[in-house]
Amino acid sequence: MSTQYTFEAIGTHWQIDIKDAITKEQSGELYEQIIKRIALFDAHYSRFRADSLVSTIARAPGSYQLPDDAEPMLSLYHKLYRMTDGRFTPLIGQALSDAGYDAHYSLKEKKLSPPPPWDEALIYNYPTLITQLPVLLDVGAAGKGYLIDIVGELLEHAGIRNYTVDAGGDMRHRTTAHMPLRVGLENPADTTQVIGIVDLQNQSLCGSAGNRRQWGNFHHILDPRSLTSPTHIAALWAVADTTLLADALSTCLFFVPPETLLKHYAFEYLILQSDFTVIMSPHFPARLFTVK
């Protein structure tokens, strides 16, 4: 007996599979809790909503109280900002918006300016965030992964031990039965194909590729230095213990070599370069299809 929820939220498709037996009543309650929790996250962090905290912060510099859930995500942003020499930054919001990835999906490019340095723009001391300049924050490089963890923890709090939370192909898997999830890695050149299979077990997998959310000269990842979207990588995937970390690293790997990040974090990676050669960590849990 298993339960499945599918719905659209935060701009992507969600599928939650629960393998533990739960009652119909429990299932209904859980679904309601999940939807409410996601709505709360959206109300805080969406830069596409005029009533969100992020939009409020963007209107005027000042001192803001952050929500209870902000600490793990923003602290990770701060650490990775330093490790990537400023290229992984929540201050990329305005540049992304000016590139055309804005609240109305205008997809029209305006003049882009590099994001300000963290120390000039922000004083972050949880639970307070002081903005010294008008800043449009964007947590798109880690927010979805973090929300997947939050939903997973909500399920665990309800006693569920065997489940998968999948939001648009980024996912967190938990099992007590040593039953790995077989996940195909989408071929960015042909989405009817996969280039390999990952056996995911009690970890999270996040992928990033430039083949979707692509417009004009851009895709969803923007290098704050060059103000262009990187083209040397066709797709990449990261496996880590949390989806927050896997998601954030899958953007960082567009900017810095894996070795820089491996000094601080445990993760496995697979980088499919634009010439279709692969750089893979020794224990990335995948079998790849190679030229035969």
Binding site: R182, G196, C206
Partner: peptide, 21 residues
């Protein structure tokens, strides 16, 4: 070296991961 794609219907999968829909 070279990685190739296999049609999704040729392999048994629970999920697919790539760029977000």
């Amino acid at each position: 070296g070279m990685i190739v794609g296999k049609n999704i219907n040729e392999v048994t999968l629970d999920k697919v991961s790539g760029s977000s829909l």
